[in-house]
Write a protein that binds this DNA or RNA. Structure first.
Length: 404
DNA sequence: TCTGGGGTCCTAGGACCC
DNA sequence: TCTGGGGTCCTAGGACCC
């Protein structure tokens, strides 16, 4: 009888590996990415071996490990490699679920362990020879178990967990290491004297159903080899968030500029995936951790920020409290409508958002050529966090604001 | 342990209605 | 008008992941 196996593919030190793949001189060297943020976002295994950790400040890395190569993040490349990696996986499995930029799940139907081994090996081989990066693969009957397997031997590993071998693996896996159980969950389960994945797996069903929430119940099933269907395909995002923190201020114009800038960038992303939001959420975070938000419902969904700005300003004025000091703002776009669906009003007229949207198509082309945010809304001018704000030579363009 | 940002999903609790 | 119960819908916020 054939079983449906889950194969989990996980890029090793993904961002750092892509840097090395793009630049052969970096291969085998200690690399850290995140130069633009001043802290390490990803490290190659060589850098990890030296003792570099996630979040470590760059100045410290430079001082302690002068041999480390510091690169700035190149998300366009990471996206590209991610797509290529998924395409290779797609050649060998019947179904692929994209999970994150460096991970995906595939489905394989077979009852032969050798076959699984073979598929795992060929995927690894093709990714290595075509992309110059390595991946770690975990195979098991469920996603949770496949994640246990891929954590087992990193980097460049291939581990299969079968029904027969599952208990050995689970006895040696701390509950906190299980996918879906975080800090709070670990505390709660430890209180019940559940220390390992095996302890959780072995609990009687009645106990799981009377004492625990949905998430733990689902994990319990998956540890027992029973698949829980859940949407892991994040190909179509349900929301686009853009937020940034900045040096604290109570200056209304500056805070609004940050908000406006976030809106512009979120809209650009929405345009790139062809999704128009119906809902726009804005939030302000104050230095005393107050979280103030508002929701805008758009009558005509649009990803032209110029059409949203007037609403944004109105709601912003409502929620802005001048006596507070702020450190962050953000914008969330949600309730998307695909942009190939033309919205018509009651009289069959196309809605009048299209002029603005065409304008932003053009702006997107200009930014592709001259860099992100070569052009931006005048309302974002005061934003300190605008990417590209270090570009030279301001250039005035009538009606649009200023391009830098 | 926190930093920092981009996401998804679930739950508790309030509002509202019958 | 109050009491009570039940259902639904929405939102804020928590938890988790990468």
């Amino acid at each position: 009888m054939n079983h449906t196996w889950v194969i989990h593919i996980d890029g090793d030190a993904f961002f750092a590996s892509v840097e090395a793949a793009n630049n052969p001189r970096l291969r085998g060297k200690p690399i850290v990415t995140g130069h633009e943020r001043g802290i390490a976002t990803a490290m190659s295994y060589q850098a990890k071996a030296l003792g570099v950790t996630r979040g470590m400040p760059m100045f410290q890395i430079r001082k302690l490990f002068p041999q480390v190569i510091i690169a700035k993040s190149d998300y366009d490349s990471y996206e590209l490699y991610s797509k290529r990696m998924i395409n290779i996986v797609r050649r060998h499995v019947s179904e692929v679920h994209e999970y994150s930029i460096d991970e995906c799940f595939g489905i394989v139907l077979t009852d032969k362990l050798e076959k699984l081994q073979e598929i795992g090996k060929i995927i690894k081989k093709e990714i290595r020879s075509e992309l110059y990066i390595t991946v770690t693969i975990g195979i098991a009957l469920t996603r949770v178990l496949a994640k246990v397997a891929s954590k087992w031997h990193k980097p460049d590993g291939l581990t299969i967990i079968t029904t027969e071998t599952a208990d050995e693996f689970l006895m040696r896996t701390q509950i906190g290491a299980i996918w879906g159980i975080g800090r709070q969950g670990t505390i709660a389960l430890r209180d019940d004297d559940i220390q390992t994945a095996y302890d959780l797996k072995s609990l009687p069903r009645e106990l799981i159903y009377t004492n625990y929430h949905k998430r733990v119940r689902e994990i319990w099933h998956e540890l027992n080899g029973q698949k829980v269907e859940r949407d892991t395909d994040h190909t179509h995002s349900k929301s686009i968030i853009r937020s940034r923190s900045f040096p604290q201020t109570n200056n209304k114009e500056i805070v609004f500029a940050e908000l406006s800038n976030n809106l512009e960038i979120a809209c650009k992303r929405a345009r790139s995936v062809g999704l128009k939001p119906r809902s726009v959420y804005l939030f302000l975070k104050s230095t005393d951790y107050r979280y103030i938000r508002a929701e805008i419902s758009l009558i005509d969904p649009t990803y032209a920020p110029s059409l949203i700005i007037p609403h944004l300003r109105k709601y912003f004025i409502d929620i802005f409290e001048p006596e507070l000091s702020y450190k962050s703002t953000g914008v969330t776009l949600a309730s998307f409508v695909p942009d190939h669906i033309g919205l018509q009003d009651l009289f069959g007229q196309m809605t009048n958002t299209t002029d603005h949207e065409h304008l932003f198509d053009t702006i997107d082309q200009i930014s592709d050529k001259f860099g992100n945010n070569a052009i931006h809304l005048a309302s974002s001018m005061n934003s300190k966090t605008r990417s590209g704000s270090f570009s030279p030579k301001p250039l005035c363009i009538p009606f649009l604001g200023v391009a830098i």
